[in-house]
Nucleic acid binder design. Structure first.
Lengths: 254, 254
DNA sequence: CAGTGGTCTAGACCACATG
DNA sequence: ATGTGGTCTAGACCACTGT
């Protein structure tokens, strides 16, 4: 089916534009159309988008306007552009996750994806913390996942992950890979594009200390992360407790 | 003196351009000219830049090219653009510092600039850590500054700051305000535009514990920050030890 | 070679702020 | 009314990638 021009679809004419309260610039509307299509799976991660002139003709806007929309998509790591090749929907391969979301780095500067070992998988009811962080109903069914992670032989992270069961049906019966975000995308159609993290220093509880093979009270970096999908909905709440004797969390601000 | 066009100054003609190894797009050259002028103080923080058509005519490039350069400057928070008003060089007022560089937030969500109390000011020689982080000569003269910070009545941060003496002559004899970055800019012409931070969880040493009025071994969030000036040179190394029982470090990733 | 993204231009018009 | 930044267009040409 023809998608029609953005202008006629969203901004009927220039005279009417001023009366529309939620008016957005054309390039922003193009951006939203493209995000929607990616979210709906019209183009899947790794696929090439149509060329810039094609998108422009399809939506009835100019080259420059499409470009500005794609610039924003690229700035948010939703697409990858390669001169001479094309524009591709970003995927969640290990390298991207590592670069974008996994901020724990060895003090030597080495940056490696950690191995994971699952400790437990449970179905639980959402408590008030989960309700607040994931915006689910009180008592909603959740999948809770505990695991420990290590780099090389060294245990370094204990992690508790909470997922709304309804967004990830049957995940509790699956074999769980190292890179969960790739699983969320490929099996459940949930593409993580943004996270917010709250960091604290805490002392290891006895149970966590046991899992990490350290003394109770050992200082740990607690990373409390909520991850959001391309549709803006919170999809995962994860609390990681990290041993930072030989690693650190890297944060560049500008 | 006339600044001349960017094109004739940096890219004599299109045929020759390919032979230049360090070729950069025009808008990038415009960007660099503008950064240089801001760094040199041609326009100071708070000043308005010339209008877009003026800059375009001045440098002999088109409106669109100037715009793309200014877009980058604005994206890096070096300038602030206000429709109908003009483009202004960004300043380091408390609100900006708070938003851009001070990531410690109360668990309640409240975001306040902390009060500071200076503990000591010393002149020391650069040790190997300082040499590595600030790229100064071994044994270079440094100013070392210890202080504690509090929000309301609550002590929450012990901080040790190291500055190359040559970049901040006489700072050791000054009264030191709460907002050091603003002092660096207004008195020493050093505008901080970027930082890199390494975070760890550590236990409070006896001396730090005393300053923060907590028990030795209390878990603290250690923030090890190097701040860079607009010229790209490292200007400050700061290690902050933060009590995170009622606060956290906020990090949004996308 | 053809097709892709990347750069640059010139000009029109809009939205906002100030006098 | 004037001047500012913000949006949008149409078209030219460049640089890179694969056939």
């Amino acid at each position: 089916m023809a998608s029609g021009s953005v202008r006629t679809a969203v901004r009927p004419d220039k005279a009417a534009a001023e009366e529309v309260p939620g008016f957005r610039p054309l390039y922003r509307q193009v951006y939203e159309v493209l995000v929607r299509r990616i979210a709906e799976g019209v183009w899947k991660p790794g696929d090439a988008l149509p060329s810039e002139p094609e998108i422009a003709a399809d939506l009835g806007v100019s080259h420059g306007t499409v470009r500005k929309a794609l610039d924003e998509l690229a700035a948010e790591n939703l697409v990858l552009r390669r001169q001479g090749r094309g524009t591709y929907v970003a995927s969640h391969d290990d390298a991207r996750i590592l670069f974008q979301f996994f901020k724990i780095v060895a003090d030597t500067g080495e940056h490696r994806f950690p191995e994971s070992r699952i400790l437990s998988v449970d179905i639980v009811d959402a408590d008030s913390d989960a309700v607040q962080r994931l915006a689910v109903r009180a008592g909603a069914r959740m999948v809770r996942l505990d695991r420990v992670r290590s780099v090389g032989e060294k245990l370094c992270i204990f992690e508790r992950i909470l997922l709304p069961k309804v967004m990830f049906p049957g995940i509790e019966k699956r074999a769980l890979p190292n890179n969960l975000y790739e699983l969320y995308r490929s099996v459940f159609g949930v593409t993580i594009v943004r996270t917010t993290e709250k960091l604290k220093a805490v002392g290891a509880t006895r149970s966590v200390a046991k899992h990490l093979d350290v003394a109770a009270g050992t200082p740990l970096l607690q990373v409390d992360r909520v991850a959001f999908g391309i549709d803006g909905k919170a999809a995962e709440w994860r609390v990681s407790l990290c041993l930072t004797d030989t690693t650190h969390y890297l944060s560049d601000l500008r």
